[in-house]
Design a protein around this nucleic acid. Structure first.
Lengths: 196, 196
DNA sequence: CTCAAAATAGAACAATCGTTCAAATGAATT
DNA sequence: AATTCATTTGAACGATTGTTCTATTTTGAG
């Protein structure tokens, strides 16, 4: 079997990528279906062939994007020797796979009355993936005696929000300065939680 | 003289306050004039009696709000003995005078094509006020031998973005947990830049 | 009390929004 | 060659957007 008529999956991917980019840049309300249509090169109507509506499109994008993000991180998470190194590696990874900008956009959507309960519930679980990845590093670091943390949950939240906003700079900065910014953030953070 | 006809200034203030709140919560595109009208209790048309248009309204709100923020901070900035204390004080101040959420909203507006050059230029200078306040603390801390920082500008940017996002939590958290979160952030940050 | 000016409301505007739908296109199966 | 079904378009929908305009109310001065 495997009837792969056409290669519609490819166009769906194009729409998804452009939409993700636009949502991250201009927010949920600030991104129109017309924008996505123009940027992806497909008609407005066709977007509704692939996705039920704007809200579901965004939720799908977020979920899929986070799942992919988590898998990609898991693939390289084992290649670090110390927890400190792993934290630097995470910052580098976040910088190069910046999908977290969708999180604040999700918050924006969640704030708006009229957002469907299904969407709200889906949005609720969005931050779980990256937060779990962060928390794992901190727990490991404490167990290894590298970190001195009395509230891991709070520390995770702090690190997560910081990484999240730093991602905004990937839109306006690049190369070495950007990399140094992320590294410096981790250096400061590690300095604040390192055991001594 | 002093012809203070009516007290229209009061209603203008009400509109400004509600609008600020809405913009911070739902973003620029996500906030409609109808929203501001409903929330402030004044007609849609009347908003245009006080403000030229939506874009100018937002710029005015941002500038005014930042100016007020800066003045209020300057009034208490002198009451701290050490730079570390001042940094904690700043976090507490930011938490209780959270106007920085307008900064990311300004970014959202700046990203959108069609935004007028005047608005863009005004938005450019928005972050100057809080950033200058942060930078002053770090410079002072270095001079006093409290901090060990090789790039004050970068450090300021990092601290500023962190405080900025933490403000988002003022919408969902409150009281002691919120306060502990801000304090913990400063503790970590100070630990990362303290001279030893 | 009168009156002009300021303040406010509310209807109306074109433009854009998200969404729907019927029609056209294309490729694979028969 | 004919048919079928997935794909894609483009026009059209009502709702909402930012904005303008006119009319009405409220105010302070003479």
């Amino acid at each position: 079997m495997n009837k792969r008529h056409y290669n519609s999956e490819e166009t769906r991917q194009v729409i998804a990528e452009k939409a993700t980019q636009l949502f991250a840049q201009k927010g949920f309300a600030g991104t129109s279906i017309a924008d996505i249509s123009r940027e992806s090169g497909f008609s407005k109507g066709h977007i509704y062939y692939h996705f039920e509506n704007k809200e579901k499109l965004f939720v799908h994008l977020s979920l899929e994007t986070m799942r992919h993000w988590g898998e990609k991180w898991q693939a390289i998470a084992g290649s670090y020797n110390t927890s400190v190194e792993k934290l630097y590696g995470m910052a580098h990874f976040v910088m190069n796979n910046y999908k977290t900008p969708l999180l604040p956009v999700g918050q924006e959507l969640a704030m708006n009355p009229g957002t469907s309960p299904d969407t709200l519930q889906a949005l609720q679980g969005l931050a779980v993936t990256p937060m779990a990845a962060y928390a794992a590093i901190f727990h490991e670091g404490v167990a290894r005696g590298e970190f001195d943390i009395d509230n891991v949950e709070e520390t995770t939240l702090l690190f997560g929000t910081w990484m999240g906003t730093l991602c905004q700079f990937t839109l306006t900065m690049e190369g070495e300065p950007l990399q140094r910014l992320f590294q410096q953030a981790v250096t400061i953070f590690v300095g604040g939680i390192r055991k001594r």
